[in-house]
Design a protein around this nucleic acid. Sequence first.
DNA 1: CTCTGTGAATATATTCACAGCA
DNA 2: TGCTGTGAATATATTCACAGAG
Lengths: 219, 219
Amino acid sequence: MMKKTTRLSDATINRIPLYLRALQELNEKDWYIISSNDLADLVGVQPAQLRKDLSYLGEFGTRGVGYDISHLKNQLSNRIGLTKKWSIAVIGAGRLGQALIRYQEFKKHDLDIRAVFDNDPSKIGKKIESKYILDISEIKNVVEEEGIQIGIITTPAESAQLAAKLLVEAGIKAILNFTPTSIEVPDKVQVRHVDLSVELQILIFKLMRENLIKEYVNG
Amino acid sequence: MMKKTTRLSDATINRIPLYLRALQELNEKDWYIISSNDLADLVGVQPAQLRKDLSYLGEFGTRGVGYDISHLKNQLSNRIGLTKKWSIAVIGAGRLGQALIRYQEFKKHDLDIRAVFDNDPSKIGKKIESKYILDISEIKNVVEEEGIQIGIITTPAESAQLAAKLLVEAGIKAILNFTPTSIEVPDKVQVRHVDLSVELQILIFKLMRENLIKEYVNG
DNA sequence: CTCTGTGAATATATTCACAGCA
DNA sequence: TGCTGTGAATATATTCACAGAG
């Protein structure tokens, strides 16, 4: 019998990986037990928030004691899906794409970049980290053959929609979009959009507001 | 007399740059007028959401007509603070750092990367995009001399906290952290954390849940 | 008539506060 | 006793629905 699939809120889904990251750091430092108070402090959330988030996935703690770091880490890894094998294709072998392909952190988490695509003939056939850069016309074949489930788009903005289209046609169900334009995909395809300019703009917006408030207070 | 500083919610602050991005794209395509319905569609929010968000900043539309794209774009740019000059320092001249320094999109928005720092003697003195890589011991001097307001950290995880400390000591009030570890800074310093592994994990988590639901429905 | 701007209603998310287990 | 897990209370955010401007 399968466990009831409780509906997790997006807010909770976004925080679980943060808990996991903190637990991994603690585990590497050979800590064993941590309370919701201390872990919440580390991540920057309220203890009740942390306990409630975890409670949606199960009961992992011991009352009066706290959480076994290694156990909770393994449980969360498993629930997130990190204990399965995931294969990734990168579309766009520019500077950002190359930086991601060589990003050591992905390897730690068994996130395997299996193929790299571009549409620039001068790049095709060259190697990055033992992987050949392939023409985007091969996306469908390679994704199917290699069982790739996730696509990362690091093309220029004007090619982003084409890249997304090719990935969706190849059967990809999750896309990480690093371009400064949003892409349209069918509802069933998960997209996360990381827009570096937007991140900076949000920072600047907050900075501005701080300054405005200061000016206001000071007359 | 200064306008009342209404408290904007974080959710609203995070969306305004998305509206701005869409408006810029429309403007480049020589569109003039757009309704809240169409703009909301483009950004992927509800029309009422968009109208309410904008209403916190002022009244920009014309009833029965819609929004003047160019005017709204200018208004939002101004409110976010993009019409001021912002200078940026990048700490960490690795692959990701170099990709950001060369990122064309920042230039479009007048976001000016003015200095690059590293602690690797073999990198110091070399040039990236006409900027010399300087030793991190110079952060304070350069930040003060050049009037830099924003720091981007692209060091390895283990150096992130040191980089943050040096930036804060130099008077920086806003930090964009691209490392896979969180940094501690005083409350008044704004931090945004972009963790590429976390982004992928969130995607995987959502993908997993889709699959679970499917398995559940199919028995 | 059309589409904005916005109070009121609803829905979500967070926090409180404490029962219950180790 | 100390800390988790969780309903109930509170706070935040979103959506509805419509008055009012052009």
